Computed example of a mutant assay.
Amino acid sequence: MKTLKTGTLVVLTSFIAFACSSSAQRSEIEEGYDAISVTLFTLEETTEETHVTGTGLLSSINDVKYAFKIGGVIDRIFVEEGQSFPKGKLIAQLLLTEIDAGHLQAQLAVDKASRDYQRVQNLFADSVATLEQLQNSKTVLELSEQQLSTVAFNKKYACIYADKPGFVVKKMANEGEVIAGGAPVLACSENGNDSWELKIGLSDKEWAKVSMGNKAKVRLEAFPDSWWEGEVFRKSGAADMGTGSFQVELKLENLTESPAIGMFGKAIIQTGLQQKSKLIPYEALIEADGKKAFVFVPMGTNRVKKQPVLIESFADKGVSISEGLEGVSEIVLGNSAFLNEFSTIQFIKQQP
Results as ranks from 00 to 15, higher is better:
residue 43 L to P: 05
residue 145 E to H: 07
residue 34 D to R: 03
residue 96 L to H: 13
residue 25 Q to I: 14
residue 65 K to L: 10
residue 326 E to V: 09
residue 297 V to S: 04
residue 217 K to P: 01
residue 244 G to S: 06
residue 195 S to I: 08
residue 48 E to A: 11
residue 10 V to D: 04
residue 39 T to D: 05
residue 189 S to F: 04
residue 191 N to Q: 13
residue 352 P to I: 10
residue 328 V to H: 02
residue 134 L to A: 10
residue 231 E to R: 13
residue 41 F to N: 07
residue 251 K to Q: 14
residue 164 K to E: 13
residue 203 S to D: 11
residue 124 F to Y: 14
residue 77 I to F: 12
residue 54 G to C: 02
residue 143 L to I: 15
residue 17 A to N: 08
residue 293 A to G: 02
residue 326 E to G: 09
residue 303 R to D: 00
residue 161 Y to I: 03
residue 345 I to M: 00
residue 200 I to S: 00
residue 214 N to A: 14
residue 310 L to G: 00
residue 276 K to V: 06
residue 233 F to D: 12
residue 66 Y to P: 01
residue 252 L to R: 06
residue 65 K to Y: 11
residue 164 K to I: 04
residue 163 D to S: 15
residue 191 N to W: 00
residue 33 Y to S: 05
residue 197 E to W: 05
residue 93 Q to Y: 10
residue 273 L to N: 12
residue 134 L to I: 01
residue 16 I to V: 15
residue 193 N to F: 08
residue 209 K to L: 15
residue 214 N to P: 01
residue 269 I to Y: 00
residue 132 E to V: 10
residue 329 S to W: 03
residue 50 T to L: 15
residue 98 E to P: 08
residue 34 D to Q: 01
residue 183 A to T: 15
residue 63 D to M: 11
residue 318 G to I: 09
residue 174 N to M: 11
residue 147 Q to P: 01
residue 173 A to Y: 07
residue 326 E to K: 10
residue 254 N to I: 07
residue 120 V to F: 12
residue 47 T to M: 02
residue 334 G to R: 03
residue 256 T to F: 10
residue 268 I to E: 07
residue 227 W to S: 15
residue 311 I to Q: 01
residue 77 I to Y: 11
residue 221 E to W: 04
residue 248 V to K: 03
residue 104 L to E: 15
residue 274 Q to L: 14
residue 290 G to Y: 13
residue 3 T to N: 10
residue 77 I to H: 06
residue 25 Q to H: 13
residue 293 A to H: 03
residue 205 K to C: 08
residue 53 T to H: 10
residue 194 D to F: 07
residue 17 A to P: 05
residue 291 K to N: 13
residue 207 W to T: 00
residue 177 E to V: 06
residue 177 E to C: 13
residue 212 M to E: 12
residue 42 T to L: 07
residue 120 V to D: 06
residue 191 N to H: 07
residue 328 V to C: 04
residue 52 V to H: 13
residue 22 S to A: 11
residue 309 V to T: 02
residue 277 S to L: 12
residue 126 D to I: 06
residue 18 F to E: 06
residue 156 K to D: 06
residue 88 G to V: 06
residue 236 S to M: 06
residue 235 K to W: 01
residue 276 K to C: 12
residue 20 C to S: 14
residue 42 T to E: 12
residue 325 L to G: 07
residue 213 G to H: 08
residue 215 K to V: 02
residue 83 Q to F: 00
residue 147 Q to N: 14
residue 94 L to C: 09
residue 4 L to K: 09
residue 226 S to V: 11
residue 152 A to T: 13
residue 201 G to H: 04
residue 42 T to R: 11
residue 186 L to V: 00
residue 212 M to G: 07
residue 161 Y to W: 07
residue 78 F to D: 15
residue 182 G to Y: 05
residue 115 R to F: 05
residue 24 A to V: 14
residue 295 V to D: 00
